[in-house]
Amino acid sequence: MARDPLPLFLERGVYRRRRMMDALRLLTVLGVVLWLIPALWPNDPSAGAQTLAMSRALFYIFGVWAALIAISAVLAFRLRRPEGSDTGAEDVH
């Protein structure tokens, strides 16, 4: 006996929930990339390049950290909502 084929399209709520979970996973990668940017800043005064202060790098890292927390909190809050409470257009049957 053959199984019923899987539906071609997912329901809107399930699709959005999966994309938000994907966004949370990619947020980790984005955070690592953003935290590595200060490693590319010039810091050798003998090379003649303008150097950046360590305090500026620390402010940048703290800002990225705070932004990642805020974004992940918003996404986590949206994932905790029940699926039936979408704020978008309602489907009329």
Results as ranks from 00 to 15, higher is better:
residue 31 G to R: 01
residue 68 L to W: 02
residue 63 G to A: 06
residue 20 M to L: 15
residue 22 D to F: 09
residue 41 W to S: 07
residue 61 I to G: 01
residue 26 L to N: 14
residue 9 F to T: 10
residue 22 D to G: 05
residue 64 V to C: 02
residue 66 A to Y: 02
residue 14 V to A: 12
residue 46 S to I: 10
residue 18 R to V: 09
residue 29 V to N: 10
residue 59 F to T: 08
residue 18 R to M: 14
residue 27 L to T: 05
residue 24 L to A: 07
residue 30 L to K: 04
residue 47 A to T: 09
residue 35 W to R: 10
residue 67 A to M: 10
residue 24 L to F: 07
residue 39 A to L: 15
residue 66 A to W: 03
residue 9 F to M: 13
residue 44 D to N: 10
residue 25 R to A: 15
residue 69 I to M: 11
residue 46 S to L: 12
residue 26 L to T: 08
residue 46 S to H: 01
residue 70 A to M: 13
residue 35 W to Y: 13
residue 59 F to L: 15
residue 59 F to A: 13
residue 49 A to Y: 11
residue 57 A to L: 05
residue 71 I to R: 03
residue 12 R to A: 15
residue 62 F to E: 03
residue 46 S to Q: 12
residue 19 R to E: 12
residue 60 Y to V: 02
residue 52 L to C: 00
residue 34 L to W: 01
residue 42 P to E: 07
residue 54 M to G: 14
residue 64 V to D: 00
residue 69 I to T: 07
residue 12 R to D: 15
residue 17 R to P: 01
residue 48 G to H: 03
residue 33 V to L: 15
residue 42 P to H: 03
residue 35 W to I: 06
residue 69 I to W: 06
residue 21 M to K: 11
residue 22 D to K: 04
residue 35 W to A: 12
residue 47 A to W: 06
residue 60 Y to D: 03
residue 33 V to G: 08
residue 61 I to C: 07
residue 8 L to F: 10
